[in-house]
């Protein structure tokens, strides 16, 4: 009897240690950004492709100049409401962050203090970003105007308010493999990089499972809007019959083939996509047409 108790205690301790280990935040490797220098002009394009402005400017800010990234955008989800933080270069934002800090946030979802970020920041996509692009993005973010607006805490109930638990979520959902395993041409590779890593299209256009992870088996098949209002359309070729030219032109102009104009969050996406070189929009279109 006493032996059994001892065994149970040992098992409990092992489980606790394993749990602690499994939920531990894991930053990216220290040397990932060694020797890289940021180019703010190139970073501006990464910023545009990533649609960072869409979530990180104040709600209703439709200005077109350098973005004031004071945050405050509310993402309503079944787990609670996430409120985008200030990421401007100020004490209230990400002023003073190193490139490694930015890389950890984007590619590992880990804060400079070593805590998990919630996947409202789409690091399951950004984990595939090129370290050079992260470095360039950092250089660009440093050129933007500072905002002193304090970031607001997310509005989450138990148990989702326990950040440590995100370690388990990451174990399930941090998959660095490409969804489109074979990208046979440089154009497809570029399109895959833009769609699956930087522009994080799947975050809205792919449905999620009960735990909020993307269902890769339904990649780009459309999804209910997590806010509960309306549906986000499928952009998989089995559901969307636009030509590659139609898709590229939509991303440039906001016009559908019927010359309806984009609305909702896609207006922000188009504003960014329109700034990219035409080859990038063509690459995204080629990627979408190539999905199996």
């Amino acid at each position: 009897m006493r032996n059994l108790l001892k065994i149970l205690i040992v098992i409990a301790i092992l489980a606790a240690v394993a749990g602690w280990f499994l939920t531990a935040p894991r930053p990216v490797s220290d040397d990932l950004f060694d020797g890289l220098t940021g180019d703010a002009n190139r970073g501006a394009l990464v910023f545009a492709a990533g649609g960072c402005r869409g979530c990180h400017v104040a709600p209703g800010d439709k200005s077109e100049g350098p973005a004031l990234l004071s945050g405050g955008y509310r993402i309503v989800s079944p787990f609670g409401t996430f409120i985008s933080p200030n990421i401007s270069p100020s004490d209230a934002g990400i002023g003073g962050w190193s490139v490694a800090d930015l890389g950890n946030a984007l590619m590992a979802g880990v804060s400079p203090r070593g805590q998990h970020y919630y996947p409202a920041l789409p690091y399951t996509a950004y984990q595939r970003m090129a370290p050079q692009d992260v470095t360039d993005l950092g250089a660009y973010l440093d050129t933007l105007p500072p905002s002193d607006v304090a970031s607001q805490p997310h509005e989450l109930g138990f148990p989702f308010n326990i950040r440590r638990g995100l370690g388990l979520w990451k174990q399930l959902n941090m998959n660095p493999d490409w969804v489109l395993a074979q990208a046979g041409t440089p154009e497809l590779e570029r399109g895959r990089y833009l769609v699956e890593a930087v522009a994080h299209c799947g975050e809205c256009h792919t449905p999620r499972d009960a735990l909020g992870g993307l269902d890769a088996g339904q990649w780009m098949m459309g999804a209910p809007n997590p806010s509960g209002k309306g549906t986000i359309p499928a952009i998989h070729p089995s559901k969307l019959d636009w030509s590659a030219g139609d898709i590229a032109y939509y991303l440039e102009s906001g016009f559908t083939p019927d010359f309806d104009a984009a609305g909702g969050q896609m207006t922000d996406v188009v504003q960014g996509m329109a700034q990219l070189p035409a080859e990038d929009r063509a690459a995204i279109a080629a990627y979408l047409k190539a999905l199996p």
């Binding site: 439709k62 809007n225 209002k229 309306g230 549906t231 359309p233 102009s253 906001g254 016009f255 104009a261 984009a262 609305g263 909702g264 969050q265 207006t267 922000d268 188009v270 504003q271 329109a274």
Partner: peptide
């Protein structure tokens, strides 16, 4: 000229049209 036209369409749809 068409870029500005598209932007003005989007500017309205963004705020005033119910998402599909």
């Amino acid at each position: 000229a068409i870029g500005a036209v598209g932007k003005s369409c989007g500017g309205c749809h963004d705020t005033y049209r119910k998402p599909k």
